[in-house]
Simulated assay, not measured.
Amino acid sequence: MTPKLHPSLLAAVLLCALGVPCCANLNAGEPYRASYYKDGEIHITVLGQPEGKAITTGHWDFKPSWSITGDHLVFFRRLKNDPVVSNWITQLCIINADGTGFHPLSDGTFTDFNPTWTRDGTNTPVWNRKNREKGGYQIMAGKIGGKPGEEIALTGKDYHAWVHSAVKDGRLFVSAIPPKLGYGHFLMTPNPGGEPKFERIDCELAKTGILDRLSISPDETKICFDYHPGKTNPNPGRILYVADFDVKARTITNAKPFANAERQKVWFDYPRWTKDGSAIVYMAGGKLFLHTLADGTTKQVSTDPKADYRYPHGEATPN
């Protein structure tokens, strides 16, 4: 099924990929707020409106995720660059949504990536830490007000695990290779100090390619993600999907592409939900776009044609 796209979307993304300034904002007045990366700084803005002052400046800050209570952002700060992204050295940080209260959660000697929050009312930040000895990643957890060194591991060092999203009962949506279970997507029940419980999620689409950057809707009935057929997962050419999600049956069904079904060699990625779950904001070609589920339309919501926009997150809506 071909998604219904705004007529300007395809042209905008192709122009951006060629380095030509993109079209002006198509979504003036849109009420949704989001946090996102713009040229290495984190902003909070009503989508479709020009940016004001960034809430972080002077650093390279990536992938903000907004707490479900709406008052905190967690993100990572790049301290050491490298052509190979997995060799970056980063620091996990928290900041209040008003730009105050900044504090680090890790000491800046690890490769810590892609944080999000639990949705069980505890506001626990969770993220992925590279395993230097064996490769792969471990899932880590901290706390608001926590200090470097106080973070704990939620998974062991003897297997790979990566957290994407969470559900309200405290389980985390993860990709992992747990002992005896093999690779897959799971709802993982954390057990600090012990072994977590993994419950496999069934998805037909996952059998033919790689699902990544997964995010569960606020009402836990939908899920969005990027997809690439086969066993490789390059940034350009990913397709963005939305599907039905059944948290009780642990199934992903009825998956439909809503962006880049043509697999243009442009980086489409990081689909994330708006606060009410009615739309998905995502990045493509250095710009931000908003896809509305009800009518299937897509509009550009970034406003600066010279800027590099990435990693959007809806207000009070963790990954």
Rank of each mutant, 00 (worst) to 15 (best):
L240S: 15
I210C: 13
K207A: 15
Y241K: 08
L211D: 15
T189W: 01
V247F: 08
S217N: 00
L211H: 15
Y183Q: 14
M188N: 07
T221S: 04
A166Y: 03
V242M: 15
R200T: 05
G182P: 03
I210G: 12
F225I: 07
L205Q: 15
W162R: 03
V174A: 11
P190I: 05
S175V: 09
L240N: 15
T189R: 02
K168H: 07
G194Y: 12
R171N: 07
S165Q: 08
L181H: 01
L214Y: 14
K231E: 15
G193V: 06
I177W: 06
E220A: 00
G193L: 02
T251I: 02
R238H: 15
I239K: 04
F173Y: 06
K231R: 03
I201W: 04
K222E: 08
A243N: 14
G182H: 03
R238P: 13
P178Y: 09
P192H: 08
P218S: 10
G230R: 01
D226H: 10
F186Q: 10
F173E: 04
R238S: 14
I216F: 02
A176C: 03
F173K: 04
G194I: 07
G182V: 08
P229N: 12
G193R: 02
P236C: 06
E220I: 00
H164R: 04
A243C: 14
P218G: 13
R238V: 09
A166C: 01
G209P: 13
P192V: 04
Y183N: 09
F225M: 09
Y241M: 02
L172E: 07
C203L: 01
R171Q: 05
T189K: 03
H164K: 07
K197V: 12
D246E: 09
F173H: 01
D202C: 12
A249P: 00
L187P: 02
T221G: 00
T253A: 07
F198N: 03
R213Y: 11
T189Q: 05
L187E: 06
L214E: 14
N233F: 14
G184D: 10
F245S: 04
P218E: 11
G182M: 06
V247W: 11
H185G: 14
P179S: 07
I210H: 13
T232M: 03
G184A: 10
I177E: 12
T189F: 05
N233M: 14
F173P: 00
E204T: 13
I252R: 12
F225S: 09
G209R: 06
G194P: 11
G170R: 00
N191K: 00
K231Q: 13
G230W: 14
H185V: 10
C224G: 08
E195A: 10
P192Q: 03
A176K: 03
V242F: 12
S215Q: 10
K180T: 04
D202E: 15
L187W: 00
D244F: 00
P178M: 06
P196C: 04
G237E: 08
I201P: 04
F225K: 02
P192S: 01
G182S: 07
K222S: 01
A176F: 03
V242A: 15
I223S: 09
H228E: 12
I177S: 07
P218V: 06
A176L: 05
M188Q: 01
K222H: 05
